[in-house]
Design a protein around this nucleic acid. Structure first.
Length: 267
DNA sequence: CTAAGGACCTGTCGGC
DNA sequence: TGCCGACAGGTCCTTA
């Protein structure tokens, strides 16, 4: 479910709701997700100072440190209603809010980590730049790929190169930029990587504006459904006609993930 | 160092 | 209807 636009949508929803409130309780219902749950005790009674995002990590900032929440492939947050289900793994109770913030994650690829104030968290340390950061220049973007022989789609999805571009957005951005996803990343001209950056920024911005992509079942905290899927031109459309040339779209696997592209338009 | 592949999990869908 | 394999939006680790 979650790519960068979904996390940003969550962040914007939580921003007016939880900063200034104390965390009263944290109730994990199992020892771990992909990683062990942290010891929440340093945060209990502490006021949430801000809700931030880095890459696909949602960051709850307290004076004592930061809680890093990653939703993996299947995680979601919602205001709890009723008894927790089998995949509801954590409740966070905030002062003055009637319902806990509930983390659900059937596949358990997500994680919750604690970063004490004044420390660097290893999960954040190796991340590449934010694609929507205005400080990311076209030349800096191209430099991320120099000397890389790996296919551009793999490089684009590598969080140590650039963050926040998951399979849907990588597929769509390459389709719009008319770049063959198999090309060696380092072989692309400045003109082409500049165009690619523009399309990466466009698809992410559109995803955010629409409240998150999510093909099937992304719901925001209020249950709103993402609608980016209606604007998808390549992802999930293998065999269907290219919107530009009408030839059937091709599907291949790269790094174990599906890549759909137009062998005629993307070169 | 880069690159490639598997591992981690459960749910869902399509084919037989 | 039931079973079985393939696949799913993301990292992280090991091996070469």
């Amino acid at each position: 479910m979650p790519e960068l636009p979904e996390i940003e949508t969550l962040r914007r929803t939580l921003e007016p709701q939880i900063p200034g409130r104390r965390l009263l309780a944290a109730t994990p219902r199992r020892p771990d997700l992909r990683l062990p749950f942290p010891d929440f005790s340093p945060l209990l009674g502490q006021v949430v100072r801000s809700v931030d995002r880095r890459s696909k990590y949602l960051l709850l900032v307290f004076d004592a440190g930061t809680l890093l929440i990653h939703l993996g492939m299947s995680g979601s947050l919602s205001w709890a209603s009723g008894q927790p289900g089998k995949h509801d793994h954590l409740d966070l109770v905030f002062e003055g809010l009637p319902q806990p913030l509930r983390l659900r994650d059937p596949r358990r690829f997500g994680s919750v980590q604690f970063q004490p104030v004044g420390t660097h968290h290893p999960s954040l340390a190796k991340l590449g730049p934010e694609p929507l950061d205005p400080a990311l220049t076209a030349r800096a973007f191209r430099a991320l790929f120099s000397d890389r022989n790996t296919p551009i789609k793999i490089a684009l999805m590598d969080p140590s190169v650039v963050v926040g571009v998951g399979n849907i957005y990588a597929t769509e951005a390459l389709f719009r930029a008319k770049i063959d996803p198999r090309l060696a990343a380092g072989s692309l001209s400045l003109a082409r990587t500049t165009r690619l950056l523009g399309h990466v920024q466009d698809v992410l911005s559109e995803g955010i504006a629409l409240g998150g992509s999510t093909l099937r079942d992304f719901h925001g905290l209020e249950g709103q459904v993402g609608t980016f899927s209606s604007t998808v031109q390549a992802y999930g459309r293998a065999g269907q006609p290219c919107v530009a040339c009408s030839r059937p779209l091709t599907i291949i696997r790269q790094g174990g993930r599906a890549t759909v592209f137009c062998a005629h338009c993307q070169r």
